[in-house]
Nucleic acid binder design. Structure first.
Lengths: 302, 302
DNA sequence: CTGTTAGCGCATTCAC
DNA sequence: GTGAATGCGCTAACAG
């Protein structure tokens, strides 16, 4: 009919508020991020915006500091204003999650699994086997036996699983845990640097460091260099994530690739499915992959 | 009245779509980011979410790749769905800006000034004098005379102004430009590293590098270290932004502090004012500040 | 296939 | 002070 074509011509833009009200949907999904500035945050956000746009959804964003829940944020992210939520890591507490679950509100969890009894879909990455592999590599290929570990933030699931994989590798090779320091890296350069500097000052011995993520690896590297240690000759160093920074360290960082683009894409896919069909029981664990560079001690062309 | 208290009790959450429709406002502001993963992106986003939340506004987010404008994004960010826009750098093109201006839609520009004839409020930082100061410092305090410069992305205003300040300093000290290489750093570690590595391979001479931002400084550092150059003994290195990474490089990076938190806060303030009063002619240029660390050659306790 | 109408949930206005 | 009516702009259901 004629109206159709006229509409096209005039570049008319419908008012979403009215549209939302009329159809009872908002075509909007909410993102809840913790207050971190991880290096992979940015590519992740991009893959999410891309996927969401493609699916015809808009994005709301909220940054939650640890444990903090402002009233405004609670109301704006509720079921009244978004069709679903993407929740990162620890960015909302269990009580709030429970409320959302009770309300059957579509929520997909990223980089964490669902608490007991709440069947939210999750998109995670394979932490344990990745950590196991890279630790095995240090032991088997480079003969390291005193491998320090830098933990992530308290309660961070990725960090716990990476530590499990690390411990598995040690155990499988008969290496006692007590031989190597374990400390806090917080998935940040600063704390990791401080921890490693302290280890060195205290004279703790280690011939390798497995940093819980690439950010803390770069902090560890800084502390080692500062103390005059050579990487990888004196100390092998490896990380996790394959964030952009991994390639720019010197030596380039051996790490485990975590496909954050895929995480974002898959999360949107899951959320769409959840919104449309209500099917909620899917858990996706994306595979990770060992990325050999030079910081472990491997030659350039391996 | 009784209803009021009952409402409080029941944790009733109003439906924004209906509210927006009724009052003709959306209480939402849109963020348009370019597709970059600068290190200061994250603190900036945080200060924006904090300020916006405090002002009672929600946030829409869109990431725009260079020059790309999807239909969906255009419609969702238009005047129909947000009360105002925060536009970063080059994230939307001039034609779209012109449309917004013609429609008198509230827009605040971040890290860029308004195109000729469009009186958008802008929030920027003092680039030129900061660049001038840090270059002066290299010349006057450390006797450097062959100072290379790493540019940001093409068309980036911050980069242009920083280059101006740099050239001013050279001119003021009677140093010819031709003595020092100028190349692309793209405000990224990778390209900066490649550029500096190329300079070194070609045998170009320089005794200092002024990197356009801290990201490219870290790339430059990697290239220098890889080539066996010592910083700051062989080559002084300075950056711009005082991003988190500056403190974690070794040696710690001398740089210019750009207060990204203040930029976010001020941008929201301006946008609120614009939305409420329509006053649009304010240009804010936030002061920057020299931050002396060790990469320039200064001792630890200066 | 086209044109008309009711109603989404709220804020605003007006009468009480 | 409180309560009832109107309409925001759109979609869906309906009647023609």
């Amino acid at each position: 009919m004629r109206v159709r074509t006229a509409v096209e011509k005039l570049s008319y833009i419908p008012q979403t508020a009215a549209r939302h009200l009329a159809q009872g949907k908002t075509q909007t999904i909410g993102l809840v991020f913790p207050d971190v500035s991880n290096d992979f945050f940015s590519p992740l956000l991009r893959s999410i915006t891309d996927s969401a746009t493609e699916a015809g959804y808009d994005l709301f964003i909220a940054i939650r500091r640890q444990g903090q829940t402002s009233r405004v944020q609670r109301s704006t992210l509720g079921k009244q204003n978004t069709d679903g939520l993407l929740v990162f890591d620890q960015s909302i507490d269990e009580g709030e999650l429970r409320r959302l679950h009770a309300a059957r509100f579509p929520v997909v969890l990223l980089y964490r699994s669902a608490p007991e009894g709440m069947a939210f879909p999750c998109v995670r990455i394979e932490n344990r086997s990745g950590a196991r592999q890279i630790t095995d590599h240090l032991i088997e290929q480079h003969g390291r036996r005193q491998i320090a570990f830098l933990r992530g933030p308290a309660g961070n699931e990725d960090s716990l699983l990476r530590e499990q994989g690390y411990r598995e590798a040690l155990a499988a090779h008969g290496i006692p845990f007590s031989a190597s320091p374990i400390g806090d890296g917080e998935f940040y350069e600063g704390p990791a640097r401080a921890t490693v500097a302290r280890w060195l000052a205290e004279g703790l011995e280690f011939d390798a460091i497995f940093a819980g993520d690439d950010g803390s690896a770069s902090g560890a590297l800084a502390a080692l260099v500062e103390a005059g240690k050579h990487v990888p000759q004196d100390v092998s160093l490896v990380g996790f994530d394959d964030a952009p920074v991994a390639r720019y360290l010197n030596p380039q960082l051996t790490t485990v690739r975590a496909p954050s683009d895929d995480v974002g894409r898959e999360a949107i896919r899951q959320l769409m499915r959840l919104i449309e069909t209500g099917a909620a029981d899917s858990i996706t664990v994306l595979p990770t992959e060992l990325v050999i560079r030079q910081s472990c001690g491997c030659p350039v062309n391996t």
